[in-house]
């Protein structure tokens, strides 16, 4: 008998996705196990962000299947292979289990930090308001922003906003967290404070999928590194090995260009 521990947290099965004539995901498959931190790297336009956005159905895959803890996301595949789109409420329920942090923060500017964090638990999961509040305080403490609870997002730095965004996603108690180039919009001196929070989350055993340009961070924090190009997984494995001894020419070239930009 299979227990929930055997089921991968995320399973991507032969997923295709095109924007018009442009094929962005080209039959991609991978699993993310419980508690695993997967970092996805790749050149721009490789499909890595699209892949991540498919994991909470912000992008809808054209074919294949995505399962979150065994449950199909967005589409249910019938026995004859045809697909049925899930009703909106079901998609929303699935999304509530998948936290996402964006490059552009996407905090709600008309709500205070506290409200940004408590809003979804109260309105989506019907958590008691006082309880949501208490949880918001704990989460802000964790990301080092307890004193900002009644500020509005526009009064925070980029790094602070991004940490609030992480706290907001965590407030839904997600099974997996997705990070979409979350430090790309930050000033260099603000990157570390966000990465520290992510590292802490990883150490606590959160299942994470991280799309990033921060190669050193990917190396340090991830359990597995995946190199994507042309909408396919080109190479994956232990981050230290992969970065030190890339096998595929494309990853070699990618790493070469990446390192060249620092020299």
């Amino acid at each position: 008998m299979s227990t929930s521990a055997d089921i991968p947290m995320v399973r991507v099965k032969d997923v295709y996705k095109s924007f018009g004539d442009l094929r962005v995901l080209d039959g991609i498959s991978f699993d993310v196990t419980r508690g695993e931190v997967l970092a996805i790297i790749g050149p721009s336009g490789s499909g890595k962000s699209t892949m991540l956005r498919c994991l909470n159905f912000l992008e809808e895959h054209d074919a294949g299947e995505i399962l979150i803890e065994g449950e199909p996301l967005g589409y249910r595949v019938r026995a004859d292979g045809s697909r049925v789109r899930e009703p909106e409420a079901e998609i929303a329920r699935m999304r509530s289990n998948v936290g996402m942090v964006f490059q552009s923060f996407n905090l709600f500017p008309h709500r205070s930090v506290r409200e940004n964090i408590t809003m979804a638990p109260v309105s989506v999961k019907h958590v008691d308001k006082a309880e949501a509040n208490a949880r918001a305080e704990v989460l802000l403490e964790k990301v080092g922003l307890a004193d900002k609870i009644d500020e509005y997002p526009s009064r925070l730095s980029g790094g602070q906003q991004q940490r609030v965004a992480i706290a907001r996603a965590l407030a839904m108690e997600p099974k997996v967290m997705l990070f979409d180039e979350v430090t790309s919009a930050l000033d260099p001196e603000l990157v570390a404070e966000v990465l520290t929070v992510m590292q802490q989350l990883a150490e606590e055993g959160m299942t994470m999928v991280i799309v990033t340009h921060e190669m050193q961070f990917a190396h340090d924090v991830s359990d597995r590194l995946m190199f994507i190009d042309g909408g396919k997984v080109i190479e994956e494995g232990n981050p230290a090995k992969l970065l030190a001894k890339p096998k595929s020419p494309r990853l070699k070239e990618f790493l070469h260009r990446f390192r060249a930009s620092f020299n």
């Binding site: 912000l58 999304r95 008309h110």
Partner: peptide, 28 residues
């Protein structure tokens, strides 16, 4: 659309996102 995505990613339906996130900002 980032505001929509922020709301939808938290598990809100389009209706909830519209009422709680989009409309209040739009009206202002």
């Amino acid at each position: 659309r980032h505001q929509w995505e922020g709301a939808l990613a938290l598990g809100m339906t389009r209706r909830k996102a519209m009422r709680q996130v989009i409309l209040p900002q739009a009206v202002l």
